[in-house]
Nucleic acid binder design. Structure first.
Lengths: 164, 164
DNA sequence: CCTACCGATCGGTAGG
DNA sequence: CCTACCGATCGGTAGG
């Protein structure tokens, strides 16, 4: 809080004229960014397209948000653990909802023979862990543009590394 | 430190008869587990095999260590940021060394036409971010055995999700 | 191995 | 918006 106050140019106690608690700031930032993902997921689900295109659209969604809101993303990946009840439970439910909907797309892709017969949870886990670490990648030097990164990730994640 | 003391069954100050500082515990745990990865990498590099087999062996390495040393792995992924100098620099170098050697295998696989012509850094990033989050996956209910998980991850990461 | 305790940090309140 | 300050926490030391 003292750091925030310094950045804003006031004394620490003055912050409390604008906010209720440190928790409140964290919760608000987290819910905002979580909303963007949920909204994006809704748009993808309404797409009239193959499941491959939907998963690729979700890859694009993560790349875009990770690029534009680097800092908030890092909250989403790490700092949500600092939330206290009841916000923690609320957040975990939203997150679970997102994962469930992602998983459903993968399962349908497998059923309809678009995707390989791999363990759907493992596929989801593999996709999401890469997508959730993107903000770290963007912390480094050789920055790829949003378009390049999206293209490369689609190739790597959808098609794997092996030739054939 | 008070939590550790309670778990061990002594008062907090008594810990300092056995250790020098909190930092020392963290550094020691981190260096131990980092060593296991560096040793594993050395063995993989000495394999007389295709680059595909080497990457698959590294997947196996991560799955095994993540399964057996869940707690230490979480230090490696998250808590190393708490290290102070000079140990921090030392750790970052070891980590960089590991990534460089992993990257070299990927690049050689691409050169020798075993792997697709994808951006090597993106491929490494994608593989490593999945492998580094494994300990979270193991925190959940439906646990796959080491063998099953290794098999599934090889398929998902090497071959991707798409049929064909 | 313990008791006693320190100094720094931190989220936050009182009162103006 | 500020000054003054509290109570809890935490890594660690002194001294036995």
């Amino acid at each position: 809080m003292r750091d925030i106050a310094k950045a804003v140019g006031v004394e620490a106690p003055s912050l409390y004229n604008h906010i209720k608690s440190k928790q409140e700031i964290l919760a608000e930032l987290l819910m905002d960014i979580a909303d963007e993902f949920i909204t994006g997921m809704g748009e993808v689900e309404r797409m009239d397209a193959k499941h491959q295109a939907k998963v690729e659209a979700l890859i694009g969604l993560h790349v875009r948000i990770s690029f534009i809101k680097r800092d908030a993303i890092s909250l989403l990946t790490h700092d949500w653990r600092q939330l206290k009840e009841p916000t923690l439970t609320e957040f975990v439910q939203i997150r679970q909802d997102y994962e469930d909907r992602f998983l459903r797309i993968i399962k349908m892709g497998i059923e309809e023979d678009e995707f390989k017969d791999i363990h759907p949870d493992v596929a989801l886990f593999s996709l999401l862990s890469t997508l959730r670490w993107l903000h770290v990648r963007y912390g480094k030097k050789d920055i790829l543009s949003i378009e390049e990164m999206t293209l490369q990730l689609k190739r790597a994640l959808m098609g794997g590394v092996l030739k054939n």
